[in-house]
Design a protein around this nucleic acid. Structure first.
Length: 672
DNA sequence: TAGCCTCGAGTTCA
DNA sequence: CTCGAGGCTA
């Protein structure tokens, strides 16, 4: 075979293989037997090997460009990839619809396109003259990471758009969602487990993780797929509506979700939402709601954007996932304050990608109200998609249930008679109850207090159980030898714990105060007290009147604090602790550019952690609070923000993304 | 005295 | 993150 013959054969083979790829991956309708396909593919590969001059990047054999990167390049998107306004309340959807109709004017024909909201990793694909030249993660919406080599390995992503030169646009930037279907996801996790690697919590993490592999050969082993749903920028494509956009994408060989629909009324949208939710478990991939988009592209232009979201699109989310499981047992547990909390141990179930095995039942009243009993089948959800909650008991005909659950009358830890305080049940043995001591130790060692690494729940329990610690100050007397004698302690971990404790003996006053666990004294109050009194002795000897001169301290808190220091056991403990620790007075805050501002953080910050961001802002004279109010200056929203973002919007508080937050700091001469 | 604002405490999993 | 309650303010 000469070079010319080879060239035409190679071209014919590529067209053939591409066609079969499209049918198999995009249309899900194979057009050839696997064996015959393999033969074609093999022949193409062999010819390309014999005639290397014929090799091109868009050949179906070149999906995996086998070299690992050092790191990803950051690239700017052709247009910002915005996030959508979203809510799960039906009223919010009604408001969206009404607002749109109002803005578009009386009698305007409003048409929507409805799509499932896929829960995967958002990417931009860029095609020039039909060739895939670039792919990027969403990143902060403006710039993302260059993951071209990885995206090329996804079989549903065409390396070359379908159609003749005339039909293919000169430039096309498409937005799509990379997802992993649930079945291959589980297979992948099993494989990872078998290899001794950590499995992924959910398909979204698995998809995002696969995209961020530096070695495309690893990505190519991960079962990724794409669905395309938007055009960011295009040249040479005549489209006037979202529906036409989707049609055009399909024509060009890009996969579009099969459940997309058109709608003209808000009733249609609710109906679609209900239908998709009903089918949610059968789709084979994860979704968390539906997306509603105004169909008319020209009308969108007129509507424009809010600070973060386009006004012409909206995500109507599903309520949190609920699953049914069985209550294995209900066990009372005593916390550091002595409050006894009933905990339901559950037959493990997966909800939204995480396995839930326990849920707090909060208090006596709660158990009674829901009438949860051991052995019951219960519906469990993750409130705010995080904290597991027992929603209700599922009753069946002819069921036989155990006796209703009752709070024990004696403390499960120390046997002292329990007392009732409102809906709560409390162990009054504050100084002799081992469970409470364990709680105190953990709190004392916690990150915001003395930050003793290696002294968590399990270790504290062990130390108390073996009698090494009978009271809080005893932790400073532990030596490495004693620890090594314990189960689970090797020499190294024993030494590092002892070192961590020794290091903690040099502590900031406010952290020490927090660690003492005085009722009503948390992070903020501890700081105010430290700043006002300057030394622990001054605080200890302060009267209730003195305390109330501190802004934020009223009669109730003053009473709690004086009662704490007035209790002989606490006084003795404090004396012993003070012999062991050296307290540093509060640092003078250099107030500067941020004085008078109030920040609230939500979501995950990428660059500097939330904790560092908080400290940085506070060190420069600003306040950080946990809830959004009218008094809030800025809400800083990282990725995956929570309800505080919605709160900020409804109160009209300015929202900063991480980039603009850092920019604000830089403006004020502050560097991270 | 009501309502807003803020804080403390408890909460699960990887 | 949510709930409940204390403190502050109008």
């Amino acid at each position: 075979m000469n070079a010319k013959q080879a060239k035409s054969r190679v071209e014919a083979l590529r067209a053939e293989v591409r066609r079969h790829d499209h049918h198999y991956y995009v249309e899900d309708r194979p057009s050839i037997a696997d064996e015959a396909y393999d033969t074609l593919y093999k022949e193409l590969g062999e010819l390309e090997e014999r005639f290397p001059a014929l090799l091109t990047a868009d050949s179906p054999t070149q999906r995996v460009a086998g070299r690992a990167l050092e790191k990803f390049r950051s690239i700017e998107h052709a247009a910002p990839m915005l996030s959508l306004d979203s809510d799960r309340e039906p009223e919010a959807l009604l408001r969206f619809d009404e607002r749109l109709r109002r803005l578009l004017g009386e009698g305007a024909n409003v048409a929507y396109v409805l799509e499932p909201k896929l829960d995967g990793a958002s990417v931009e694909l860029v095609y020039e003259d039909g060739l895939l030249i670039r792919a990027a993660t969403r990143g902060d919406g403006v710039r993302g990471e260059d993951v071209t080599a990885n995206v090329r390995t996804i079989p549903t992503v065409p390396l070359r758009l379908r159609g003749s030169k005339k039909e293919v646009p000169g430039f096309l930037s498409v937005r799509g969602e990379v997802v992993m279907r649930t079945v291959p996801f589980e297979a992948l996790n099993e494989r990872l487990l078998a290899e001794g690697s950590a499995p992924f919590a959910n398909p979204r993490n698995a998809a995002a993780g696969a995209l961020r592999q530096l070695d495309p050969r690893i990505t190519s082993q991960r079962p990724l797929e794409i669905y395309c749903y938007d055009i960011l920028v295009e040249r040479g494509l005549a489209v006037a509506t979202q529906w036409e956009v989707l049609e055009a994408l399909k024509r060009l060989g890009l996969r579009v979700n099969e459940r997309v629909r058109r709608a003209t009324t808000v009733e249609d949208i609710f109906e679609y939402h209900a239908a998709i939710e009903r089918d949610r478990d059968d789709l084979g991939y994860e979704i968390d709601g539906i997306v509603v988009k105004l169909d008319d592209l020209a009308a969108r232009e007129g509507l424009g954007l809010t600070s973060r979201h386009p006004r012409w699109a909206y995500a109507h989310k599903f309520p949190p996932r609920k699953e049914i499981t069985k209550v294995l047992s209900i066990v009372p547990s005593v916390g550091r304050t002595g409050v006894v909390t009933p905990i339901a141990f559950l037959l493990p179930v997966e909800i939204g990608g995480v396995t839930i095995s326990r849920a707090s039942l909060h208090n006596r009243e709660e158990v009674k109200r829901k009438d949860v009993r051991e052995g019951d089948r219960v519906r469990v959800q993750r409130a705010g998609d995080v904290i597991p909650q027992v929603v209700e008991v599922i009753h069946e005909d002819g069921e036989t249930r155990g006796p209703s659950w009752a709070m024990p009358s004696a403390c499960p830890s120390c046997g002292t008679g329990l007392i009732e305080r409102g809906p709560f049940t409390v162990c009054p043995n504050a100084f002799g109850c081992r469970a409470q001591l364990v709680g105190h130790i953990v709190h004392f060692a916690s990150r915001n207090a003395l930050d003793i690494e290696g002294l968590g729940d399990e270790t504290a329990k062990q130390l108390v159980d073996v009698g090494l610690v009978a009271s809080l100050p005893d932790i400073f007397d532990i030596d490495a030898e004693q620890l090594v004698a314990l189960e689970g302690f090797a020499e190294k971990s024993a030494e590092s714990l002892v070192a961590a404790i020794a290091q903690a003996a040099n502590a900031e006053l406010e952290r020490f105060l927090l660690g003492l666990g005085i009722p009503e004294v948390g992070e903020a109050v501890a700081r105010d007290l430290a700043a006002h009194f300057g030394a622990i002795e001054a605080l200890r000897d302060a009267s209730a009147e003195d305390l109330q001169t501190v802004p934020g301290i009223g009669p109730k808190m003053a009473e709690q604090i004086t009662a704490f220091f007035g209790t002989p056991e606490n006084a003795a403990t404090l004396e012993r602790l003070l012999k062991r620790v050296r307290l540093r007075p509060p640092e003078k805050r250099r107030s500067s550019g941020l004085a008078g501002l109030k920040f609230v953080f939500t979501g995950t910050l990428e660059g500097l952690g939330r904790r560092e961001a908080k400290e940085l802002v506070e060190a420069n004279g600003a306040k950080v609070s946990s809830a959004v109010s009218k008094a809030t200056s800025y809400v800083v929203a990282g990725s995956d923000p929570g309800s505080k973002l919605d709160e900020a919007r409804s109160l009209g508080v300015e929202v900063l993304d991480e980039e603009r937050f850092v920019a604000l700091l830089r403006e004020k001469g502050i560097h991270a």
